Computed example of a mutant assay.
Amino acid sequence: AVQKQMAERQKKYAGSCTTNRYPFTQKIRCACCGKYYRRKTTVTGVVWICSTYNTKGKKYCPTAKQIPENTLLSACCDVLEISEFDAEQFAEQIEQIQIPAPNELQFCFSDGTEQTVSWKDRSRSESWTAEMREKARQKKWRQS
Rank of each mutant, 00 (worst) to 15 (best):
A7C: 10
A136D: 09
T116S: 12
P68T: 02
E114C: 13
A31R: 13
F85Q: 02
L105P: 13
G112C: 05
Q115D: 08
E8M: 13
T42G: 06
A31T: 15
Q26K: 14
R39V: 11
S125V: 10
Q93T: 00
S118A: 10
Q66D: 14
Q89W: 00
T18Y: 14
I28D: 06
S123T: 09
S74V: 02
P23A: 01
Y60G: 00
L80V: 00
S74R: 11
R9Q: 12
P23V: 00
A7V: 04
S83R: 08
C77R: 00
K12S: 01
T41G: 04
T116W: 00
I49E: 02
E92A: 02
A101Q: 15
E84L: 09
K40H: 14
T63D: 10
T55K: 15
K27W: 01
L105C: 02
K59D: 06
S16M: 15
Q10C: 02
W128V: 01
S16P: 05
A91W: 03
C77E: 00
I49T: 10
M6L: 15
Q66L: 10
Q89I: 05
I67P: 06
C17S: 14
A7G: 00
K56F: 11
F107K: 04
A91F: 05
C108Q: 10
T116P: 03
C76W: 02
N70T: 09
D121C: 03
C32G: 09
I67N: 07
F90Q: 01
R137K: 11
Q10L: 10
N20T: 09
Y13G: 04
A14G: 07
V79F: 00
V79D: 08
A87Y: 04
K140W: 11
T42C: 13
T55H: 15
I82T: 11
P68N: 06
K59E: 04
A64Q: 12
Y60E: 12
T129M: 07
C50V: 11
C33F: 07
I99S: 03
Q138P: 03
Q3H: 09
R124E: 15
K135A: 11
F90C: 03
G112E: 04
G15L: 00
K11P: 08
Y36H: 13
G45K: 06
S123N: 05
I28F: 01
R122S: 12
S127R: 15
E134H: 09
Q106W: 07
C61S: 07
R122E: 13
E131N: 02
G45R: 07
V2A: 11
K27Q: 03
C76D: 00
A87D: 07
I67W: 01
Q89F: 05
S144Q: 12
M6V: 11
T19L: 13
T25Y: 06
I94P: 10
K35Q: 14
I99T: 15
R142L: 07
